[in-house]
């Protein structure tokens, strides 16, 4: 024992570089540093350090954190691959689906789910993410009972479903026809009340000026105001149809924003990880 202590002290004295605390680039210290960066939300650097760390160690937690880092920096393809690489040793399948949802790759998400085994489909919240993706994509929306079952009759989700299945769109054709019959009414139909009333008044005043000038035999001014009336009238019909299209786009954008906000609020149905506690 005495000899051991003696040689150890001698070794440390002669070769101080052997002291473990100084090696900032050892795999353990690289991992610690990567964790520090991860918790600072410096995911780009964290990913680089985790990659470095994985060249010398094989650790599923590190791989999982690397996948999370990739996703935070928008490297979705790498993130998906990394999540799949640790499954099933690590329960990363929900994060794989979550990545596809965040990426907006709804078709891959839906086809992957359809092709998955019943066991994989039953992992929480894989089914929830699968169903939620249809609220974004809007194609082949599953039946409402599927949502009621998967989300325990959650009122918010059901209201999203109802908006998606029967969106309160305005028809551009109806808006145009309404404005052709009563100038401005098409705009009112699309919720543009101020524009509708203004269009009605301007068209009316211009038409009256045209009639009054013809009546007073001021033919030039009569034609001038007739031309202006026609321009306003035609422009208003076109504007009403465009307004209906904008209204419809607004409905879609508003729903997408609400869906994203809800998903953020629910942390994408994912558990909270305690990597930074």
């Amino acid at each position: 024992m005495r000899y051991f202590v003696f040689y150890f002290l001698l070794l440390v004295t002669v070769f101080p570089a052997g002291l473990p605390a100084q090696d900032m680039h050892s795999p353990e210290n690289i991992e610690k540093f990567a964790d520090y960066l991860f918790c600072l939300k410096d995911y780009l650097r964290a990913a680089y350090e985790y990659e470095n760390c994985l060249t010398s160690v094989n650790n599923d937690t590190v791989k999982f954190k690397l996948a999370l880092s990739y996703r935070y920096i928008g490297e979705y393809k790498k993130a998906s691959e990394a999540f799949l690489s640790v499954y099933p040793a690590f329960n990363s399948l929900p994060e794989y689906y979550n990545t596809l949802l965040i990426q907006g790759d709804y078709s891959t998400l839906q086809s992957t789910y359809t092709a998955a085994s019943a066991e994989q489909q039953s992992i929480f919240p894989v089914k929830q993410l699968y169903l939620y993706s249809f609220l974004f994509s809007g194609t082949n929306l599953p039946g409402i009972y599927e949502y009621e079952n998967a989300f325990n009759k959650n009122d918010t989700i059901i209201s999203f479903y109802k908006i998606k299945s029967d969106p309160p769109y305005r028809s551009p054709a109806i808006a145009a026809v309404m404005s052709a019959i009563i100038p401005g009414s098409g705009k009112i139909y699309t919720g543009q009340y101020g524009d509708g009333i203004t269009a009605f008044l301007v068209s009316g005043v211009l038409a009256y000026l045209s009639w009054a000038n013809f009546d007073a035999h001021h033919n030039f001014r009569g034609w001038l105001f007739s031309g202006l009336t026609a321009m306003f009238y035609g422009g208003n019909i076109y504007g009403s149809a465009a307004s209906a299209q904008l209204f419809n786009a607004g409905v879609k954008i508003s729903l997408d924003n609400q869906l994203k906000a809800y998903l953020d609020g629910e942390n994408n149905f994912m558990p909270e990880y305690d990597f930074c506690r």
């Binding site: 440390v12 004295t13 101080p16 002291l19 605390a21």
Partner: peptide
């Protein structure tokens, strides 16, 4: 050894 450690 201690001094070396600190210095290093």
């Amino acid at each position: 050894a201690v001094i070396n450690s600190l210095l290093f």
